[in-house]
Design a protein around this nucleic acid. Structure first.
Length: 302
DNA sequence: GCCCAGGTGCGGC
DNA sequence: GCCGCACATGGG
């Protein structure tokens, strides 16, 4: 069926939204962006202030939620008090929306992502879902992503594949199936409580989930819009455009090409970023990430 | 071959 | 706490 969702003036740019790196396993086809939502394959395209979707059954509610169409970003941005550079980022990438991904798939994505390239991440996720039933839409095929239970019976592609990460993923899957890892509870918790529960507390502590992965989880699937994941690209962007958020010695070090942060440094900068950007933090972070990766911005060579 | 990629765990101070 | 290193995979 073909469905239409009126955007009511709210901006939606699918290239920015699916191309910015917040989600993997989506492809741009001639007819639009192809991926899986709610266990179905779907094609998305924006035209004339409306989102058109093609799928077997209607996905209206799922898509409104997935694309966070309930959020009026333009209004939030108008009411904000951000600096000129942030506003120019938000303008350049207008229509980039933070998705509400499935928490389990999101957790796997970012546990896998550690120290891999974007291409490698996409390839690994493809291998993980390769054995899943194919979701079809006309001539298009996508693989659904295995849930925690299904993941436990996914065959390791080859001996030693992903190394320790594979064991971490299996442990996380077990925690999710036995309920000790409770995504709904994390969704309802405050940013601080949810972050601590993912990273720090002995109970519920997940190997393979550090500060950055936790922030990605919180932002991309658990509705913590103030979460501000900081990877190498974002740190370069911060040192370049938001120097005042960083301790001087960290800014200097990054300009020399050493972006790695200690836990303490991460926590400190994250706190400053969250209090400065507020609920627009996650959105600015994604715009900055996209900007740093596409605009070819490099730190000034010192 | 070597370097770098959406970091994290671990052992050594 | 902080530092240095190992860790897997894939592309340039």
């Amino acid at each position: 069926m073909l469905g239409r969702i009126d955007l009511k003036g709210e901006a939606l740019n699918l290239d920015h939204t699916f191309g910015c790196g917040q989600i993997f396993q989506w492809r741009k086809e001639e007819e639009g962006w192809l991926g899986a939502v709610g266990g179905q394959a779907v094609l998305l395209r924006v035209e004339d202030d409306a989102l058109f979707f093609r799928s077997e059954r209607s996905l209206r509610d799922e898509l409104e939620r997935f694309l966070s169409l309930d959020l009026r970003y333009d209004e939030i941005i108008r009411g904000s008090d951000l600096d000129a550079f942030s506003l120019s980022l938000l303008r350049d990438y207008r229509g980039l929306r933070i998705l509400r991904q499935d928490p389990w798939a999101c957790l796997v994505t970012y546990m896998v992502s550690a120290s891999l390239s974007i291409r490698a991440i996409d390839r690994v996720l493809g291998r993980i879902s390769a054995g899943m039933p194919a979701l079809r839409l006309d001539e298009h095929v996508v693989n659904d992503f295995p849930g925690p239970n299904e993941f436990l019976s996914v065959r390791r592609p080859k001996k030693g594949y992903l190394g320790r990460k594979w064991e971490y993923l299996r442990t996380a899957a077990a925690e999710a199936t036995n309920g000790r890892l409770d995504f709904d509870r994390l969704r309802l918790a405050s940013y601080d409580d949810a972050w601590r529960s993912l990273v720090l507390s002995k109970e519920g502590h997940l190997l393979g989930v550090g500060p950055k992965v936790a922030d990605c989880m919180l932002l991309f699937s658990l509705e913590k819009r103030e979460a501000f994941p900081m990877d190498r690209w974002v740190m370069r962007g911060l040192s370049h455009h938001y120097g005042w958020l960083l301790p001087e010695e960290v800014a200097v070090r990054i300009r020399k090409g050493k972006e790695a942060l200690s836990r303490g440094e991460y926590a400190g900068i994250s706190g400053r970023a969250r209090s400065y950007f507020g609920e627009l933090g996650g959105l600015v972070q994604e715009c900055l990430f996209l900007h740093m990766r596409t605009a070819g911005s490099r730190p000034p060579s010192v």
